[in-house]
Design a protein around this nucleic acid. Sequence first.
DNA 1: TGTTTATATTCAACAAGTTTAATATAGCAT
DNA 2: ATGCTATATTAAACTTGTTGAATATAAACA
Lengths: 182, 182
Amino acid sequence: MSLKHGLLGLLNCEGPTTGYDLDKFFKNSLAHFWQAKSSHIYRELGKMEDEGWLTSERVLQEEKPNKRVYSITPLGKSELLNWLSSPDISLGGGAKSSFLMRIFFAGEAGKEQTIKLLKEYRERAIAYGHELIEVQNMIAAEANIYPKHTTYWRLTALHGEISCKAATEWSTKAIAILEEEQ
Amino acid sequence: MSLKHGLLGLLNCEGPTTGYDLDKFFKNSLAHFWQAKSSHIYRELGKMEDEGWLTSERVLQEEKPNKRVYSITPLGKSELLNWLSSPDISLGGGAKSSFLMRIFFAGEAGKEQTIKLLKEYRERAIAYGHELIEVQNMIAAEANIYPKHTTYWRLTALHGEISCKAATEWSTKAIAILEEEQ
DNA sequence: TGTTTATATTCAACAAGTTTAATATAGCAT
DNA sequence: ATGCTATATTAAACTTGTTGAATATAAACA
């Protein structure tokens, strides 16, 4: 149940926010490790209100369509803190990768096709690694606005950067292993 | 839609198999990067038969309960090959990590709690990395039984091993960054 | 004789996530 | 006027995944 907790976390950082803005914040931050469709976000906000984690009020606007602004309740805040402290260290027991599943069965598809796939993967890993260095710079620039959180945001981007280096190393080795095969 | 394709792949490797055995194979192989409950596996097998990817027949046994044996059809095989060649290189756009989401919001929980979490994560990464070296040895021992696939199975375990090294490196750095903070 | 283990499967309720599209307002450009 | 972009939300159908229990046979063991 992480989408709800992601939304709780964003509402806790940003204060009262609309579904529309949460959707944008989500896509600019959490989307690196958790994706959600706008319609799903709106639906979860409704459920979270039912559960008492949020309250909302309708705000009438003249220049733009009316909107609904959500705020985190004390119950929601305690749910967030509770979730943060509950242990859920997943490493090999929780992560899903359809990419690795393809590699697992790639003997059926053949060596050439797999090498092609691995080369594409490698290019993406390199490019995304560069992107994540940029992300870290952008986060550093926000240090004065969100002093409590920027260190942790940077840690997630650093995780991505190091993972991309690992993905690059792995794909290079994997290509070599396949090419060396008779 | 990877559970179905994982089952297709296993059936293609092993030949006609029961849901019970597929469940065991799954938990000994694909479970490193894709988890599924037994009940889910049985349900998907039924749907795959409806789609014409599999056929099944009831086998009566005397020493054990009767069973249903599934076989991949030509349609299922072509679906497998088609899936293998369809591009789906996910890196940063598809993977979900509730662990990274926790880190992202960990400023709310505090430095000490986060360092504790990171140390546990680091221990698991080290231990799982060792386990995956063992897995590679076990796969190598099966090279004569499954000559077409062992190279690829090994590549997935190598991916895990390198990812664990990256996770270890990251958590070490992350702990240092938090401890250096005033 | 009763308990546990392994084999083998089914069902139901629920939660989470995807896909697609519809609806509506208003500013801005062509 | 027309279409585009941004704002702002809702709805419905569907797929996928989780949880937990129920059912049944037979061997093994104590």
